[in-house]
């Protein structure tokens, strides 16, 4: 097991648990993200879907929105940021208390998207540091949840390098393709 993949709690089956303080704090942080939704554009539609019953972001401990940057840890930048909006975004980010994380929701927030013109900020990373990029125009809620989980994982590891949500393959399709080619080999062999 590598250094970065430690369990937070060990020995819990014996009735007690040991961990490191830092891990414990990170564990607490990652499941209690208070979010500030900086919602501007089209991605707001998917952001609403993300909060609504079918996808339900609350399952991941990131439900409570706080409309004051001073009370929030996670800044969702949802939508295009224009040059005119950029100073406001920077102010909001500066007002947030540490530790603070930024999630760029959608292509426009990540790199400006196809609006390469006089008015659009080509990615919010020009102004504020970003932890997780979620590509898509707008991204599907599933990939946003992927991004949220990636962020939680990064918080647990204490890793602040920017990450990007990778495209996923459909497990059913993979299974189907594998089954067609080698029907006798099971997908996963269990040692235990």
């Amino acid at each position: 097991m590598s250094q970065t993949q430690r369990y937070v709690f060990e020995g819990s089956q014996q009735g007690f648990a040991t961990t490191r303080l830092e891990d414990l704090l990170n564990w607490a942080k990652k499941y209690s993200l208070f979010q500030y939704p900086f919602v501007t554009a089209c991605c707001a539609m998917e952001f609403m879907a993300l909060a609504s019953p079918r996808f339900d972001m609350a399952r991941f401990g990131a439900e409570a929105p706080r409309f004051s940057p001073r009370q929030s840890d996670l800044l969702w930048v949802v939508g295009t940021i224009s040059q005119r909006q950029a100073p406001i975004l920077k102010t909001v980010y500066d007002q947030m208390a540490d530790p603070k994380y930024v999630l760029a929701f959608g292509t426009c927030a990540s790199c400006g998207g196809f609006y390469d013109n006089y008015t659009t900020l080509a990615g919010i990373d020009k102004v504020v540091p970003v932890d997780v990029y979620v590509p898509g125009c707008p991204p599907r809620p599933e990939s946003v949840i992927d991004g949220l989980l990636l962020l939680q994982d990064k918080i647990q590891r204490g890793d602040r390098t920017p990450g990007i949500v990778k495209p996923r393959t459909d497990p059913h399709q993979v299974a189907k393709a594998l089954a067609e080619h080698s029907p006798l080999v099971p997908l996963r062999t269990s040692k235990s």
């Binding site: 501007t40 295009t80 224009s82 005119r84 013109n117 659009t120």
Partner: peptide
């Protein structure tokens, strides 16, 4: 208004 001006007409 204008905080979401994305230059549609120019694009």
């Amino acid at each position: 208004i204008g905080y979401l001006h994305r230059g549609f007409e120019k694009m």
